[in-house]
Structure formats: structure tokens, C-alpha cells
Simulated assay, not measured.
Amino acid sequence: MSVGTVAQQRFPRTSQGLHNVWSSWQQLGEQTRFYSKTIMSFAEVFARYKTELLRQIAAMSLGTGALAVIGGTVAVTAFLTTSTGAIVAAQGYNQLSQVGVEALVGFASAYLNTRLITPTTAAIALAATIGAGATAQLGAMRINEEIDALEVMGIRSIAYLASTRVIAGVVVVLPLYSVALIMAYGAARFGTTAVYGQSSGVYHHYFRTFLIPGDVVRSFTVAIAAAVMIMMIHTYYGYTAAGGPAGVGEAVGRATRTSLVATGLLILLVSLAIYGQTGLFNFSG
């Protein structure tokens, strides 16, 4: 009887804990290797798989099947950001009016929507639509052995399936995030001026005063970084799915949870890196 077997018999909980830690580290290493291969295959996508890249861009932006009827990811993102913009108007006006500074709702929209709310909402929409769809597609291909068939045909599956989706996600997120910002700003303005009756001139004065163009550019940077992370996580879980249809559903759930947590941490760290020291903000006038 080996020493390891004796240890497992005497300390079953400790051995199980060490096994779980080792499995977690091993999975992290596998993910890192997959992400590295995905990034290194970007050049190969433009050289060999341009048609697949264009197809993925069209599918992600407009949607396929039933999702295309309502406009795909664009409609989902617009609806979510419109809701958050309306919440900024409602909560901002009610809370600020209690201390007599309801005129600053325009400032709240320019500051909160740009730096925090819209990037987070857009990331949630990406994970729930594009990301989950990518995981389900790749998972179905894996359990049907279609990925193995691609490898037999001489097609590099990671470049063809994962890298194309990551690049397509970055391309799609640029106009998608533009729509998200416009809808968030518009909903906050409409709610404040049309519903609560604040003067449009007052709202526009504070909104334009505190809307920093550099913040908009940095907000796009955060959205692009979030899109890359979301697509890489979802493609990994779909590419490595196992266990039949139930395994695909489990992979979608795990990918969504992981991407949302990772994206939240990413937005937090990037926001601290950009705004943490000085905030790039002066409140005056």
C-alpha cells in the first residue's frame, strides 16, 4: 500500500481538499493555454477565415432565428440601457430633490452612465446574449463531434471557432456600445425633463458641463476589454463542454456566472486604474 493511499484513508477530508485545489489550478492552466492560443490565432483568422468572421459579425449584431425578430443583441442592449437610464432619472431626481439640488440630475447622468452603469449593463447584455449563444453553439458542436471533424479536415478549430468569435465580439461591441450610451443618455434626459418637469436648459447645462469627452473614450475601452473577456470565457466553456445536452446547459450556466464575475472585477480594476488616483473630475460651479 502506497503512502498516498494511506494518507487518503487516514485524512479523507484533507486529501479531497488538496485534490480540489489541484483540479482548480489545473483547470486555470488549461484556460490560460486556451486563451493564449485564441489570441495567437488572430492573425490566422484574417488570413484564412475571413468569411467565417463576417458571418459571426452578422449573427452577433442582428441575431439569428427568433432573436433576429426583435433585432438581436442591439435590441436587448438598447432595452436594458434604456431601463438603467430611466432609473438614473427617477432615483437621481427623487434623491437629489430631497436636499434641493435636483438640477444636478444631468451631472448624475453624465457621470454615472458613462463611467459605471452603461459599461456594466452592456457587459451583462453581451454575456446573456452573444456569450451564452456562443457557448451553446460550441457545446453542441463538441458533443456532436463536429469540432473533431473540423480538426480531421485540417481546419484549426480554435482559430475557426474561438478566435473568430472573439474578434467579432470586439467589432460588434463598438456600434453596440454607441447605441447603449445614446439610449442611456436619452432615457435619463426624457425621464428628467418630460416626466419630472425639469427645464431642458438646466438639464443640458449640467449634463454638458460634466460630460468629459475623454471619459466617453475610456468607457469604450472598458467595454472592449469586457467584450474580449466575455467572449474568451464563453468560447472556452463551449469548446470544452462534455456530457451531452445536459452538459451543454451546465457549460452555459458556468460560463455566464464566470463571465459576469470576471467582468465585474475587470470593470472595477480598470475604473480604479483610470479614475482611482485623481478621479479626473472637478465639481464646481
Rank of each mutant, 00 (worst) to 15 (best):
F11Q: 15
S15C: 09
G17C: 11
H19P: 00
K37R: 08
F42W: 04
A47C: 03
A47L: 06
A47H: 07
Y49N: 11
E52C: 12
M60S: 11
T64V: 13
I70M: 15
G71F: 07
V74I: 13
V76L: 08
L80S: 12
G85Y: 04
G85H: 00
I87C: 13
Y93F: 14
N94C: 07
Q98H: 14
V99L: 15
G100W: 15
V101D: 14
L104N: 09
A108L: 12
A110W: 06
Y111D: 09
Y111V: 11
L116E: 05
T120G: 12
I124L: 13
L126T: 14
T135Y: 04
L138H: 10
A140L: 11
N144D: 12
E145T: 11
E145Y: 08
I147C: 08
I147N: 10
L150I: 09
L150T: 13
M153T: 04
S157E: 01
I158G: 03
A159C: 03
R165S: 00
V166A: 04
V170Y: 09
S178E: 01
S178H: 01
V179I: 10
L181R: 02
A188T: 05
R189A: 06
T193G: 01
A194L: 04
V195P: 05
V195Y: 10
S199M: 11
S200T: 00
G201C: 05
V202N: 12
G214Y: 04
S219P: 01
S219I: 03
F220Q: 04
T221I: 07
A227L: 13
M229W: 14
I230G: 15
T235I: 04
Y236S: 10
Y237D: 06
P245K: 07
A246N: 00
A251L: 08
V252Y: 03
G253L: 05
A255V: 04
T258V: 04
T263D: 14
L266W: 13
L269N: 03
V270Q: 10
Q277G: 14
L280N: 14
F281I: 15
G285A: 15
